[in-house]
Nucleic acid binder design. Structure first.
Length: 218
DNA sequence: GACCAGGCACATC
DNA sequence: GATGTGCATGGT
């Protein structure tokens, strides 16, 4: 078992299953992925609930909804003008290129989907990879700020590693099982929320990793 | 009242 | 390639 696998084991033992992504449908996951950019999940839930209350959490309904109405509904999740445009540009491609159908979308290869989604204004690597992993069940590892922070804090990567370089480390170290990737990323976020507030340089994870590393040296 | 949250695009050096 | 800034709300 390599170090990346060991850390998954440690986090899973500590925090247990995270049941990500919290959503009733895969389309809801995508909307959440866009709304949660630099935003607390609680605020995202408020926006999602607004959309649900109005029965608008549907690609075709959102397609025909005016930007004014949409921006009012998603206001609680912040950056609402910019996120209205991001949602609209995703839905535009989703409907016109993929028939507004996640089942149809899921017949395309991962590399093609990633490329097409990255062309959408406002969808960067993290958002696109979240969509691929959680809405389409593709074994693509999501790298976020917590991942960078935690794994550089552990001394496994330098803090200047690029997104792709860090993602490659996970792809090379783990079996490409989407459930594993889903759980691992969720655990990283959970650990980050709890321990990285003031960057506690010696959290339990770091102590464990260091002691395991030392044992192997002996 | 300051600080932060499950990013991204764009400007500048 | 790295670093800084605007985007905005709501919880702690």
């Amino acid at each position: 078992m390599n170090l990346i696998e060991e850390i998954f084991k440690i986090l899973f033992y500590k925090y247990g299953p995270q049941y990500w992504w919290p959503a009733e449908t895969n389309f809801e996951i995508i909307v959440g992925a866009i709304l949660t950019q630099a935003t607390n999940w609680r605020n995202v839930e408020k926006s999602i609930n607004n959309l649900k209350k109005e029965k608008l959490l549907d690609p075709f309904k959102l397609y025909y909804l005016s930007e004014e109405e949409l921006s009012t509904l998603i206001k609680p999740s912040g950056f609402y003008k910019i996120k209205t445009k991001r949602l609209k540009s995703f839905i535009n491609i989703f409907i016109n290129k993929f028939k507004g159908d996640l089942g149809y979308m899921n017949t395309f290869p991962t590399s093609y989907l990633r490329e097409e989604l990255l062309k959408i204004e406002g969808l960067g690597k993290e958002t696109v990879d979240s969509i691929l992993l959680y809405a389409l069940n593709r074994p693509i590892f999501v790298i976020d700020n917590y991942t960078k922070k935690i794994f550089s804090c552990l001394g496994i990567v330098s803090n200047r590693k690029s997104y792709d370089a860090l993602q490659n480390i996970f792809h090379e170290s783990l079996f490409p099982i989407y459930q594993l990737f889903q759980e691992y990323h969720a655990l990283i976020v959970e650990h980050g929320k709890r321990e990285c507030k003031r960057c506690l340089s010696f959290c339990f994870l770091k102590k464990l990793v260091i002691s395991e590393f030392l044992q192997k040296q002996l």
